[in-house]
Each structure stands twice: as C-alpha cells, then as structure tokens.
C-alpha cells in the first residue's frame, strides 16, 4: 500500500528555513504572514492490510521519519483502485 507522511515543524518551534523563505518572499513583494517548511515522505509498504499498514506507518513516523520533540506528522494512506 502507498502512503504519504507529512512532517511539519511543531507550532512554537523555531523554523529557520521557513523564516528565511518568508523573508525572501516578502522581499519579492508578496504579502506574507508566515512560512513553515516541512517534509513529504512517500512510502510504499508491503502489506495490503489497512490496519497493519497504519500501525507500521505510525511506528516508523514516530521512531524515525519525524522527531516528535519538534515535529508533528500526518499519515495519509492512499486508497488503491
């Protein structure tokens, strides 16, 4: 099964990269309130069992793909046709 894991910097955690891009966009004339930069991880797992896939994705997101101290994550399981 295919899934997408979205990793984002948690609210309140400084995001120097987002801050730099915000500054750059503002200089280019955009009216910018804020920019936060995260990461998209596309994962394909072997199993076709939805529950099992979700459990595995949850564990890998928590243990490796995100650092829960500073990042939150969302798992989107893509339905296969």
């Amino acid at each position: 099964m295919k899934a997408t894991v979205l990793v984002r910097p948690k609210a309140g955690i400084l995001d120097p990269q987002g801050e730099a891009v915000r500054g750059s966009l503002a200089k280019s004339g955009f009216d910018i309130v804020s920019v936060r930069i995260g990461r998209v991880v596309d994962v394909e797992v072997e199993t076709s069992d939805r529950e099992k896939a979700l459990a595995e994705l949850e564990q890998m997101s928590h243990d490796l793909l995100a650092n829960p101290l500073i990042e939150s994550y969302e798992i989107e399981l893509l339905e296969e046709a």
């Binding site: 400084l14 120097p16 990269q17 730099a20 650092n67 500073i70």
Partner: peptide
C-alpha cells in the same frame, strides 16, 4: 532536546 539548523542558516 534536539539540534536544529543554525538560526543564521
């Protein structure tokens, strides 16, 4: 804790 990118980038 954790070490993130330098504030200066």
């Amino acid at each position: 804790g954790v070490l993130i990118r330098n504030a200066s980038l």
